[in-house]
Design a protein around this nucleic acid. Structure first.
Lengths: 150, 150
DNA sequence: CAAATATATATGTATATACATTTATTGTGC
DNA sequence: GCACAATAAATGTATATACATATATATTTG
């Protein structure tokens, strides 16, 4: 019994669409909670982890704070400060850009890559375990979410 | 083109499931962003709005801070402080409980009900407009999300 | 009944988001 | 070239979450 009705103790919704909105928000919070413990044990937040993955995805190619922001899951986040936190922990480096001195170029360090290699694997293993969807259902879910935002 | 691939500029995902996780989190943030402007014009946050709706749902029946927390979309939120903010704005009242003096009973005021009546209608109208799912698709989405968390 | 335990709520602190503003630099029109 | 707008990033401040701890009251147990 993990219906949204049960989870938020609400029996009536004005429409399936309104219910879906609450369900998406609730499920996103639930997902975050599931992952938090693991993140915490590595001294990093889900948002910082997201930034690290973006940087790894660059494969050494230069990216600025703006580029990170555009690729983030939350477009209203504040990449500048997240990068600060990651620099403190030596997971990323900041280099000033020669061509355009307004820009900075952000790179993931070897220490950052090591962390990701380990944490990423554990997060994915955990996800696979507690997310009760098969590939076809996941694909359908992606289709619906993409359509929702069209 | 509002596929998640495009939105976060990432072409490769390790599985449909992993992609779905990012899609849910991204979509929840997107939904929040869509609603924020409207909330802001009424001097309230989405989380405070959620608390007000919970209180309205009580139809005058007493509920404590704990009960609010259990019904919230984010179980890790902090109902106590959200109630504080709502009291400042006179949208809710706090009464000490006679039977159990540890508890407080929280009620929505007429001012709070008026706000909800107006804002709720506008939020739902806006949602209907920018959420591109029909009732059947919404129902399917709810089924998938409920299953995911099983 | 007193001491220990449990419960309801509040509070302290670190992190993150929302949004306006600031600072530094670059590009453009005249 | 210079004033002015545009851009990249950083910063200030309010709100919210995550989690540990504190405070008050209630319940249980010896």
């Amino acid at each position: 019994m993990s219906t949204i009705e049960h989870e938020i103790q609400q029996q009536h919704f004005s429409s399936h669409k309104q219910k879906a909105i609450l369900n998406i928000i609730f499920t996103a919070n639930w997902l975050r909670s599931q992952q938090l413990q693991l993140f915490k044990s590595y001294g990093i937040s889900p948002e910082q982890f997201n930034v690290l993955r973006i940087l790894r995805g660059q494969k050494g190619k230069a990216i600025g704070v703006n580029g990170i922001q555009e690729r983030m899951l939350d477009k209203n986040s504040n990449a500048s400060r997240l990068v600060d936190k990651l620099i403190e922990k030596q997971f990323v480096e900041r280099k000033s850009c020669a061509n355009d001195r307004r820009q900075v170029e952000v790179f993931i360090t070897n220490k950052g890559l090591s962390l990701l290699a380990e944490l990423d694997e554990q997060i994915m293993a955990a996800d696979d375990k507690y997310i009760q969807l098969d590939a076809a259902e996941s694909e359908l879910l992606n289709t619906l979410l993409d359509k929702l935002r069209t």
